[in-house]
Amino acid sequence: MEALETIMHLSVKPCRLLCLLLLLFNFSTNSAGADQTVLKKASLIPLWYPQAQFAGYYVALEKGIYRNHGIDLKILPGGPDHSPTQLLRSGEADFAVLWLSTALQQYESGEKLINVAQIVQKSSMMLVARKSSGIDTPADMQGKKVGIWGGGLAIPAETFFKKYQLSVREVRQSYTVNLFLRGGIDVASAMWYNEFHTILNSGIDTDELNLFFLHDYGIKFPEDGLYTLAKTYRRDPILVDAFVKASLAGWAYAFANPEETLDIVIRLMNEANLPANRAHQQWMLARMRDLIQPLNSSDSIGELKLSDYEAVGSALQINGVIKTVPGFEDFVRRSDAR
């Protein structure tokens, strides 16, 4: 009150007064939440090279959202030579972007990690075949050459084959779709937001393709989530909460400002010497928006639903990927709200 009275005595203009008050208020909340002067260091490892799939994190970093939440975040370079699970395990990364199926597999193998936010709400994985190959139904894939990604990314597709009791000739698919484009395989794995668009932008029209969205065939595996080790969470739950809040705020900003977001993503791709195609990143960002926004408007963004968790757990169990499904409470960060 004393300060306020002093300001009043200065007889400044009302708008300037308001600004000053806001500044004052802002400062006080910051100091109450996280000390601005002492930022906590943390690191995040994305699943892949910089691209719009991780736009929310890059934007949050770029726009100082992590900093505002008291985190000095470093986003580690992703890519085929940088396994998020390994980096998480080794402690080089505090947070990782992982698929739910991969995370459960890791959990089973003894790595106690925790889902702190479920970013992508539904499966965007799909199998793509040329119409000319005559593969119109899952049954037509019997005995065909199918491109499958390595590691945890293979789980949804393999669940699909088991569900339809298909024995296919699995060919390890690289991160390009050229093997499919050249006719080296009959069916390719593709993410709706990425490889599918790459195929379209290699001159193949949608009506020349048969698309099998795993989601439509009951393989409803939520994908990108944010994970940390259980011990990290125990050590500093405030940091984890702040990281989740900032990441979600980053996504909200990215969707609200797509052009600025694309500028940031393209710049990072150029810096990483990656071919950067704005049309492709634009497609990817738009699809991420479709995937991240909750299916029901009542649900909040970034939340792993128990029903999804149980469905994935039992599917993985049935298909022998994991033996036991960890308790939901153990696996999921206890949100402050609950």
Binding site: L200, N201, S202, P275, R278
Partner: peptide, 26 residues
């Protein structure tokens, strides 16, 4: 290239970044 990617072009920015299809799209 075979995928429509631009390999040589007077605009250097397009090389390896854009394909004829992505230009058509954007």
């Amino acid at each position: 290239s075979r995928n429509g990617t631009i390999l040589t072009h007077p605009s250097k920015d397009l090389i390896m970044n854009e394909s004829i299809f992505s230009i058509a799209e954007s």
